[in-house]
Design a protein around this nucleic acid. Structure first.
Lengths: 182, 182
DNA sequence: CTAACAGGGTTCGGATTCCGAACCGTGCAG
DNA sequence: CTGCACGGTTCGGAATCCGAACCCTGTTAG
């Protein structure tokens, strides 16, 4: 039988997803989810990527309760994903803009979008993303700088990195013997 | 001033994120979030990618309440992201495995992981993903099949696709005039 | 045969969080 | 002075989440 596993976080295969000692998860996915792991938060970010940046605009667009929007925007600003910036003085109005940190979430958003396009869109993609200079549809995928190749998840393996915690699964520095089961 | 916007879903810039007429959102990101837009759900998927596939293993690994795990696994099976498969008969034991649909979420998971590595990992990435054939670290990014180039989010624009709803923002078929503000 | 145990759940209060509607304060504009 | 838009806060009630306890099936030990 195939008891082999597949990539993604092999280094802490036996650890709990949560706080082993210092209160923060030892997995980058879990840590990322502590910041943006919430439906509303992701939709707010989608809006800011689309240029919808003001409290009232986001509120109108999403139908999100104001109290929740206030809380989510505050948290995003606090963690540095968005910044609050005054864009006019009379009357004073602020908008919420993506920081570099926020902008680097684009692969996650695009990944969700492509997946929804592929598996959940009855009538085809509502929106198509194209490479502006040439108008071709954008691809999102894995790439190897060494081989120059594109490839799928089956060719990926995980191994402990510099931030691996002792006692959370893998022997530090040694490659965890995982292979794809795809 | 720059009132220009950035990619991602331009086609429904004025629409609500939710159900315009048939009860399902007209944005693929929102639709995707209806299926996997939950912290626990994503952590469960992370585990299945790592080869943790049994109820008790996931329960132990995440510390998730059993009732919640039962509900999430049921929903994932129902939507086709996971499948429940018997892997031994005496005693009867099942495991939850990724389907093709589930496996195609890998860019989202990897995107979250890279982002967490880059912005939230104090001591460096807990886990490193490498291209198995050559051992080089995996890159995740946008690619243009036409130009053969890799590029960032600033070179992406959104336009209405075949599944765009009338009255949700853009004129169908016409490119929405968005540019990056990065 | 009986006891003990693991896997995979279900049930049940109590604590959080979410939600929608109403209200509030500031700064214009008429 | 009145009205209005923006960006919130406050406030119950409803939905979720949580941990602990319990349950059923099938297996292994004595």
């Amino acid at each position: 039988m195939d008891t082999e596993a597949q990539s993604l976080g092999a280094a802490e295969a036996a650890g709990s997803g949560d706080a082993p000692d210092d209160g923060s998860p030892s997995c980058s996915i879990a840590r990322a989810l502590d910041v943006i792991g919430d439906r509303w938060t992701i939709l707010i970010l989608r809006d800011t990527f689309r240029g919808i940046r003001r409290f009232s605009e986001i509120h109108r667009d999403l139908g999100i309760p104001k109290a929740v929007l206030t809380e989510r925007l505050g948290r995003l600003v606090e963690t540095g994903v968005l910044e609050r910036r005054r864009y006019q003085d009379r009357p004073p109005r602020d908008e919420y803009r993506l920081t570099d940190m926020g902008r680097e979430l684009s692969p996650v958003l695009v990944g969700l979008m492509r997946w929804g396009d592929r598996w959940l869109a009855e009538h085809g993609p509502p929106t198509v993303l194209v490479h502006e200079p040439c108008g071709t549809e954008v691809e999102l995928g894995f790439h190897c700088r060494c081989c120059g190749q594109d490839f799928g998840p089956t060719e990926i393996v995980g191994m402990p990195g510099p931030g691996a915690r002792p006692g959370t699964g893998g022997v530090p520095g040694r490659r965890t013997p995982l292979r794809s089961t795809v």
